[in-house]
Write a protein that binds this DNA or RNA. Sequence first.
DNA 1: TCAAAAGTGTTCCGAATACACCCATGC
DNA 2: GCATGGGTGTATTCGGAACACTTTTGA
Lengths: 245, 245
Amino acid sequence: MSNSLDPTITHYLSENNLPFKDFFQFGLSVDCVIFGYQQKSLKVLLIQRGAEPFQSKWAIPGDLVNPGEDLNASANRILKHLTGLENIFVEQFHTFGKTDRHPAGRVVTVGYFSLVRGENYQPVASNWASDIGWFDVEDLPDLAFDHSQIMDAAINALRKKVRTEPIGFNLLPPKFTLLELQGLYEAVLRQKFDKPNFRKKILGTGILIPLDEVQQNVAHRPAKLFRFDLERYHSLGREPFSFEL
Amino acid sequence: MSNSLDPTITHYLSENNLPFKDFFQFGLSVDCVIFGYQQKSLKVLLIQRGAEPFQSKWAIPGDLVNPGEDLNASANRILKHLTGLENIFVEQFHTFGKTDRHPAGRVVTVGYFSLVRGENYQPVASNWASDIGWFDVEDLPDLAFDHSQIMDAAINALRKKVRTEPIGFNLLPPKFTLLELQGLYEAVLRQKFDKPNFRKKILGTGILIPLDEVQQNVAHRPAKLFRFDLERYHSLGREPFSFEL
DNA sequence: TCAAAAGTGTTCCGAATACACCCATGC
DNA sequence: GCATGGGTGTATTCGGAACACTTTTGA
């Protein structure tokens, strides 16, 4: 990475009598809202801060971006650090840059949300987290910084995205039943669906592959297992005009 | 804005043997893709760079964020500066932070897109633009930096948003005909619509107010004028489950 | 009277909805 | 047997697509 200056920038700075350092003085962080689906509820993974400011407050996991690190790499690093998982679904949704959002100075944070399966993560104690845990999205504690606002935006982004793209599968194990899938959508969208119609709709898309496997050890008729077919999804034509999703 | 340090940050830095300055060394800019609708086509406003790097290349208008300035304020400042307009539709869509995206160093840019009506702007020459002009989105020149990528993302964000929320009206004058509205959607979505069905669908939403006015001096039956009713829109219940917009 | 665009009505079809009903398993 | 969830079929309704048609203006 070069330290030479962009003539455009220097020109601008001298025109406006501004010292150079003021313009490369931003702190940059990534915050990652990690969603999970457990006990038929949508959950988020939060950490409890181990230091001031906001010591002992719950917060969205995040970290400063390293100077030579891409934003996505930063988000993946946080996920790896916290859950031990790699190659999981992660997506940027909004950047928060209010001047007063961080008491230490101008720190702009890029918000990501991530979807992980079940509880198969490694909770890792760290220097910046005294505790870590899953919270129901319907019952969240007060959060540090502007994290409540970031959380709201993340949940809205998830709800919006889940309606138009088949990302919900990232919250389920690779093999799942249709009623598990329905429960997931009901939890995310806070909405009940009719079982027969849900089946028809999902199966009608052709993006689910029925497996030759069924549930084991259940006190009722065992359900057939399915898996999501990403290839078939991509080979579909889409997007009618709806205007009001 | 305080210059005191976040103990979390300093702790982290000392733990990792990293100098403080490395973490507040980010440059931050805002790039604003300005869309317009003219001659039945979707256009964007570009500037021609007056300085290196990428001198004389076309680029998305943007600027460094001032230290005490919110991101949205920055976007609005750029719009005001370039078009003379205030209070116009603007929305953040994505943040671009590849380490090598700017030759001068680590500059992260927050992408916004904006919708303006017709050509009622004041093209302003400036120290960082040698020229300025509208380009058809279907026929764009090579752009400076990673701006082609940013432009693609902006167009996709607009297409996605225009399907689910009534933002298209920001590209039209306050009073418009249904066929003008239809032409706008056709240009943005690259798709033809059936006139009778389009009318029924739009009118059926109840978000358009018919005015007691018609077109003047047209060589055919003059069309009724309508305006968009934001209040009525907000008082609507929405969102069925579509999964495939 | 003709061109051009505005505006309406009707038919058809497929998807979404609302149900009623049967099936397989563990206890 | 019976409780529990798995799974299917059908009738109805609603909205979208296709398209034929009439109306109003300027030239």
